[in-house]
Amino acid sequence: MGAVERPECLPTTEDAVWIRVEEASSVGAVRRAATGLAQRLGFGGTRVAEVGIVATELGTNLQRHAREGMVVLRVARTDTEASLEVLAVDRGPGIADVSRTMRDGHSTGGTLGIGLGAITRLADWSAVHSEVGAGTVVVARFHPARTPGTAQYATGITRAIGSETVCGDAYAIRREDQRLVLMVCDGAGHGPLAATASRRAVRVFCEGPWSSPTVAVERIHRELMGTRGGAVGVAELNPATQTVRYAGIGNIAGSVVTPASRRGMVCLPGIAGHRARSVRGFDYPLPHGGVVVLHSDGLTDRWQLDPGSGVLSADPVVIAAVLLRDAGVRQDDASVVVARLPAP
């Protein structure tokens, strides 16, 4: 009998800083925040400078050419180190020729002129997705020392409401053998008390393994008693059967998205930690090329991923950023997790 892979709770990326880029002074704020965070994470001087160059270029492009540009600085921690992601998101006008923009030295009009090609050289891993008239997402990932980067198969993004410093939504991702298990919790309300509930859900979820999403949701429901409670959804992606099993309480929306369709998954009414019907799991086919999306009601459910844009084949962080940009509700905390089955 072969060895069984130890269950692993993958690092949850912390969305540390959100910066709206509308004025020239915002570019300096982006650079200072990015380099300051890199220094706090223990990056060396050369690496900090490279982070600063990329942050400045992305911020300048947003300020001069984009609409509703945002830079998100994200930190992912493992047992041995913390990596930094710089994520730039905007609503337009988009890039008509991404391949040309990827060439070193190409400037889109008075920026540093290093081009997205040089950004990909300075970062350990990067990705660009752009749709003319819709907007652009650029992500660059840095480790303290240069480390060849790879695409992810599951990740999430959270955003706090308004001026709140903590988000009441949280997520976690587990890998058990070849199965991938996702959890999203939307703590009731917002602010520190909502965050307390959602973080407890993360802790309980990471204590698995779980025999099924139903068992995980039931345990989280019991453990949230005494907190504000919230909505919770758990999805298990199984490559052996090419299915996803989903169980949830409350208003966590789950969907299986393929180039041909989007199918919603059933989440039963209730409030985890307070009142809930008997939890049930539901199975759905997950064909090759499909992705699973879970999100809180900080996103409207009226979104579509245009298969013709190539977004469905993009890295999950790119898909999550597009969804939050296009469907995010600013009057609520928001979280979205995107995953696809790992390559066999």
Rank of each mutant, 00 (worst) to 15 (best):
A216K: 08
V71G: 11
Y246V: 12
V138C: 03
C267F: 13
R146A: 15
Q331R: 13
V232C: 06
D15Q: 14
L122W: 09
S261C: 06
V337K: 08
L180W: 02
M70Y: 13
V128I: 13
N61E: 00
P148W: 06
G52M: 07
V27D: 00
T258P: 09
A123L: 01
E8S: 11
V322A: 01
G44C: 07
V202M: 08
R100C: 00
A118E: 15
R6E: 13
A247Q: 03
T120I: 00
R175H: 06
V75S: 10
V291Y: 02
R219H: 12
D326R: 14
L112A: 13
G92N: 10
V336K: 13
A260I: 00
W125T: 01
E85D: 15
V89F: 11
G254P: 01
Y246Q: 01
D177P: 00
C185S: 14
G28R: 10
A172N: 08
E8Y: 12
G229D: 05
V128D: 03
A260N: 06
R121Q: 15
C167I: 03
R31G: 01
D79P: 01
A134L: 13
G250D: 03
S211T: 05
A16F: 06
A216G: 10
V244L: 04
R77K: 15
A160Y: 02
P144V: 05
D301K: 12
I319K: 03
G135I: 02
R330S: 14
G281N: 06
P269A: 10
M70R: 15
S99W: 05
V257S: 01
M70C: 11
S25N: 06
R31K: 13
A201K: 09
A320R: 08
H143R: 10
L116E: 00
S212D: 03
A16P: 01
E14G: 01
D177E: 15
L323K: 11
G290W: 04
R175T: 07
T165M: 12
D177F: 00
D104Q: 11
A38C: 10
W18I: 05
S255W: 13
L224K: 11
D169E: 09
T78D: 14
A343V: 09
L58F: 12
Y246C: 07
P344T: 06
V181Y: 02
D15T: 13
Q152A: 14
P259Q: 02
T241N: 07
D124P: 10
P259M: 04
V166P: 00
P239T: 07
A240T: 07
D306Y: 09
G44W: 01
P192H: 03
G208R: 02
L84F: 12
I157A: 10
G162T: 05
W303C: 08
A123N: 01
V257N: 01
G264P: 01
V232I: 09
S26C: 14
G59M: 01
I19E: 07
S313W: 05
E22Q: 14
R31E: 14
V137E: 05
